[in-house]
């Protein structure tokens, strides 16, 4: 893990920070808001805020975790913004749920196996949409961003035990959805 000094120094070259973490922030935003344009705007806002606040960064967490912290807050603010709910329903650049499972690598699987895999990925995708905002955040950080529980706790500001509870409930819901999709 980077020390506080190393992390603070990392922020001096902000262009590199954007290059390094853009995809991670954008991916989390996209999986959360399910809209390409909104995710792009959200990621830009995240880096802008980080740039403005870089002076207050103390290096208690890594730069990546700190950026995710900002992104999580932005996603939450966006979800609470009722004005956006209408546009969310009428979104033009929304990620098509039917095609969310299109990118499964083939790896020479039989058509039946590939079709089943797509159905299951689709079921996970659908399940994450019906999760509560916190459960979804924790689930995406764990199973898309591969963050461990302590990193998730640092990024969300929750206790590790609370992260476990949200993750457990999210997994139960996802498993149930996958089971019924079979």
């Amino acid at each position: 893990m980077a020390t506080a000094v190393e992390s603070s120094r990392e922020l001096e070259d902000f262009e590199s920070v954007v290059r390094l973490y853009w995809l991670k922030v954008f991916r989390f935003a996209l999986a959360s808001v399910r809209d390409h344009d909104a995710a792009q705007t959200l990621a830009q806002d995240c880096f802008y805020k980080a740039y403005k606040a870089r002076g207050s960064f103390r290096g208690e967490a890594s730069v990546g975790t700190w950026l995710m912290q900002i992104a999580i807050n932005l996603v939450r603010d966006q979800a609470r913004d009722r004005r956006l709910q209408f546009w969310k329903r009428a979104r033009q650049t929304g990620v098509d749920l039917d095609t969310a499972s299109r990118w499964i690598p083939d790896r020479g699987a039989s058509p039946e196996v590939a079709a089943l895999a797509k159905e299951q990925v689709q079921a996970v995708w659908n399940a994450t949409e019906s999760l509560s905002e916190r459960q979804r955040t924790v689930f995406l950080l764990r199973f898309v961003e591969d963050m461990d529980l302590l990193e998730i706790a640092a990024a969300t500001g929750l206790k590790e035990g609370t992260v476990k509870i949200h993750l457990f409930r999210a997994l139960q819901a996802v498993r149930e959805r996958v089971r019924t999709a079979k």
């Binding site: 853009w22 995809l23 991916r27 995710a39 990620v95 969310a100 499964i104 690598p105």
Partner: peptide, 16 residues
């Protein structure tokens, strides 16, 4: 596979 799908879906986004 879900991780792979989400990662692939967002991989085309280049940083501005």
């Amino acid at each position: 596979q879900f991780r792979g799908a989400v990662r692939e879906m967002s991989s085309s986004a280049a940083p501005p």
